[in-house]
Design a protein around this nucleic acid. Structure first.
Lengths: 204, 204
DNA sequence: GAATGTACTGGACTGTGAGTCCAGTTGTTG
DNA sequence: CAACAACTGGACTCACAGTCCAGTACATTC
C-alpha cells in the first residue's frame, strides 16, 4: 500500500500523538502498528527497539522546538531592535504559542525521559542533555546582548538565567498536566517575562 | 522474621529509593520484594497493585514536602517578622535544602506521574492535583500577606505566582536530572527568589 | 487451649508487551 | 532479470504485572 520511507514518519506521528496523550510506557508497539496499518515486523524494520523510537521522537521534537524558538525570537527582533524589548515580545509570543498547542506540548518528552532514566539508553539521555544545553547557550547569548546595553538589578548567573527558560517551560508543563489547566505553562512564561522586565534596568 | 506492619513502610522506603534512581516503570515488584526480603504474595498483601504503591508513595512524599515547607517558612518567619524578608529567607533555605538532598528529590514523583498519565489511576492523579493546589494556596496566602504591606511593581496573578514555586521546583528538577548538574534546581529557586525580591517594592 | 485473625510464604498460572528470527512477498531500480 | 528495499506473518523467548490459593507462624480473644 505505502510507497517509500514515509512509513517511518507515519509511525513517528502516531507514536507522538499517543505518547502525548498517555505517556511513553503506556504506548505499546502493537497499538502503534495497528494504528499505522503495518505489521510488527515492519515496525522493527524501521526501529530496532523502543529506544530508537524514543530517540527519533526526541530528535524531531528538539528540531521543532529549535525552529519555534528561531522563528519566534527572529520575529520579535524584527518588531523591536532593542534586545530587551525583543526578548519580552518573544516571551509573550512563546506564551501564546504554548497556549495554542492543542493536545499538549511535546516538552513532555524531555521531562518524561528525564524521569524514566533506566528505561532509556545513553543516546536518549545525551540527546536530552544536549538539547537543554543548546537552549541554555541560545538564551544566554540573548541575555548577554541585553546586558551589554542594560544594567542588571540583581547579580545572576547568565547560564542559570538561560536555563530558566527551559525550566519554566518544563515546570509549567508539569503543572499544566497535573492540574489539567490548559494555560498554566503560558502563565508561568508570563511570570518569567515579568522577571526579565524587572531584572534589567536602563543603563544609568 | 519481621514483627508487625513495618513491612509496609520498608517496602515504601525501598520502592522510593529505587524509583528515585530509575523511575517508576523501571522498578519491578520482583526487585522490590527481593530487596525487602519478602515474597511476592507479601507485597500484594500490602498493596493490591502498583497503583496502590504509587498512591502510597505520593501520599508520603506530599506529607514530607508539606512538612518541609512548614518547617522552612516557619523558621524563616521566626528570623524576620517582615513577610517579604521571611519569604526571601525561606526560599534561600529551600534552595539549600534542595541542594542537600543526596540522591534526588522526590519531586520526581509528581512530574513522573504527571507524564505517565494512563499508567496511573484516577486516585493517583487526583492526589497529585490536590497537592499542587495545596501549595498554590499556601504560597498565595504568603504573597497576599506580602502584598498587604508592599506594592507590586508588576501586575501578576497571585495564584500563578503561588504556582510558580512548584513550577520552578519541578522544572528545576527536570533540568537537574537531564543535565546531571546537582545544583540546577537550587539555582532556579534562587532566580525565583531574585524575582520575588524585585517584584515587591516598599509601600510609597 | 481452641478458635480466630493477621501477616505473611511459595508456587502455579494467565496475560501483555518487548524483542528475536526468519522465510517469504511485492515493488523499484540498475 | 537480479538485487535490494520495504515490508508481511507467524512462531518463539523472556520479563513483569497480577490472580488465586493452600498452607503456616504468631498473637489475640473467648
Amino acid at each position: 500500500m505505502a510507497g517509500k520511507a514515509d512509513t517511518r514518519a507515519r509511525i513517528l506521528d502516531i507514536a507522538e500523538a499517543a505518547v502525548l496523550e498517555k505517556g511513553f510506557e503506556a504506548t505499546s508497539i502493537d497499538e502503534i502498528v495497528a494504528s499505522a496499518g503495518i505489521s510488527r515486523g515492519g515496525f522493527f524494520y524501521h526501529f530496532p527497539d523502543k529506544n530508537a523510537l524514543a530517540r527519533a521522537m526526541l530528535e524531531r521534537y528538539i528540531a521543532t522546538e529549535d525552529k519555534l524558538y528561531d522563528d519566534i525570537f527572529a520575529r520579535a527582533r524584527a518588531l523591536d531592535d532593542d534586545p530587551l524589548h525583543a526578548m519580552l515580545i518573544g516571551l509573550k509570543m512563546l506564551a501564546e504559542a504554548l497556549e495554542n498547542m492543542p493536545q499538549g506540548h511535546p516538552g513532555c518528552v524531555i521531562a518524561s525521559t528525564a524521569y524514566q532514566d533506566r528505561l532509556f539508553d545513553q543516546g536518549v539521555r545525551d540527546l536530552n542533555r544536549q538539547a537543554i544545553l543548546g537552549w541554555r547557550a541560545r538564551f544566554r547569548a540573548m541575555f548577554e546582548e541585553i546586558e551589554s546595553s542594560y544594567d542588571l538589578r540583581e547579580t545572576v548567573d547568565l547560564d542559570a538565567l538561560g536555563d530558566m527558560v527551559s525550566s519554566v517551560v518544563e515546570g509549567g508543563l508539569v503543572l499544566q498536566r497535573a492540574l489539567r489547566e490548559h494555560n498554566a505553562a503560558s502563565q508561568q512564561i508570563m511570570l518569567l517575562r515579568s522577571y526579565i522586565k524587572l531584572l534589567f534596568a536602563p543603563r544609568a
